[in-house]
Design a protein around this nucleic acid. Structure first.
Lengths: 246, 246
DNA sequence: CGATGGGTTGACCGGTGTCAAGTTTTGTGG
DNA sequence: CCACAAAACTTGACACCGGTCAACCCATCG
């Protein structure tokens, strides 16, 4: 364990950056063109809660009264079929904003993968603010568009890529996300389990495991420990996936 | 051909409903709470163009300067990989509005399946209008959320369903769409080719063909002609897909 | 008419899923 | 800190779904 101390720790990376109180609201506001006064307003509105790994933060289909801002930790967004099959539609990292609600209903559930801190921003209050400051609306719209784009990338992946390509693509995207979130490192801790990866990629845990093993044997990645990832040559991994990286 | 005259003709269903000039703008406005004056405003802004089957209406990655409103016909939204693999992310029917543009870029291409009429609404002008009347913003947001929801349904499908389930699901959704668009009929014309269906479902044309053949033999559907669909018992087809139908 | 393109059907094969055993890691209580 | 149990992960054998390739059918259009 001690040999991986320099590895990015998603669950701590963000909260150690600034002051402890509402320190991610600047991130949220930073996207828009309007300035710091919104941050103050938002800070007053929001409540932060903590969840342990495995807990459900919000349920698919529930009335959604809040937007969510992830302050630390990693979450998964899930949809279940009645027979238990599960699709993970996305992973959520610190700084991500969840703002969608069709008919005021959550379109998917949100579960904590690691321990997480989630900032709840009451929907009606933010909406009030938005109606006063149209530039905030842009922020919300952009957040949804960003998610739409991500979801469509995943469509292309699930519909057209084989197992090798899916895993390679996942590793590339993950590596990029982890680099954004913490400091870029050659090694990064994979926060999610094989089962999570499998349900994200539409594969089984066995197939994920096999592909990872193959990539390791071929020297394209190394896994010094189960959940520690080191990518030798990122370009080699995703050179044929340029349309995603765009 | 003559025996299918009573079948829904998507390409004509809408335009025969009202007057010929901008008659779909009420549909667009009808979603929001604000009234008919917007329709007039929009009508003045928009230009309608026609395309033949197979033509490209807009390109993936192009600068997007307009929103699109489909007046008649059917389109497909596509993303290509460099090696030619194609994923159809959605089919577009009359009345559908396309409003998204990440970074002012189209996230996918739009191609005509049948002959189509498309109403171009210049983006900057609608945006001006939106900033004056916030209730119009709702309309745009709702349109994006609707697409996001649809895309996520498809994720679940591509990630978790097998070939039989995918085709059954497709038929159910299609049937519903066709019923919404035209008058509900027992028989409906399938506007897209097997190749389109295959690329939408992440399968091959052979597999689609085989599954359809199987469903026909089992008496769950009948295909009196290649592209004429008649579903015996819709519930039987999608009873295990309730989480989609919601 | 024949040519062309879309659709169907069959034979075969390979990639993934399934099932099961074994191994490593993690967590817990002494 | 160790011992043990539980969970997560890996690996192998095998089966089967769906892809590939090829032949054929059918409708449309010159």
């Amino acid at each position: 364990m001690s040999k991986f101390e320099n590895v990015v720790q998603i669950d701590k990376a963000q909260s150690s950056k600034g002051s402890d109180r509402n320190d991610l609201i600047p991130t949220l506001c930073g996207h828009g063109t309007c300035a710091a006064d919104h941050c103050v307003a938002l800070a007053g509105l929001s409540v932060t809660k903590e969840y342990k790994a495995g807990e459900t933060v919000f349920w698919d289909g529930d009335a959604s009264k809040s937007y969510f801002l992830i302050k630390s930790g990693v979450m998964r967004c899930v949809r279940y079929l009645e027979d238990g099959r599960r699709q993970i539609t996305r992973f959520i990292f610190p700084g991500d904003l969840i703002v969608h609600l069709g008919n005021n209903q959550n379109m998917y559930g949100g579960e904590a993968i690691t321990a997480v801190e989630v900032q709840f921003i009451p929907r009606d209050k933010l909406d009030q603010l938005v109606s006063k400051k149209p530039c905030l609306a842009d922020l919300v719209t952009r957040s949804i568009l960003e998610e739409l784009r991500e979801t469509q990338d995943q469509l292309l992946m699930l519909g057209q890529l084989n197992a090798n390509e899916r895993v390679a693509h996942f590793l590339c995207v993950l590596r990029k996300r982890l680099a954004d979130t913490g400091h870029p490192q050659t090694e990064a801790k994979i926060p999610m389990s094989r089962a999570d990866i499998a349900d994200y990629l539409g594969l089984t845990i066995e197939t994920v495991s096999r592909v990872l093993g193959r990539l390791r044997k071929e020297g394209k990645i190394s896994l010094p420990a189960n959940n520690i990832l080191s990518v030798r040559d990122p370009h080699q991994l995703d050179h044929h996936l340029d349309s995603f990286v765009a």
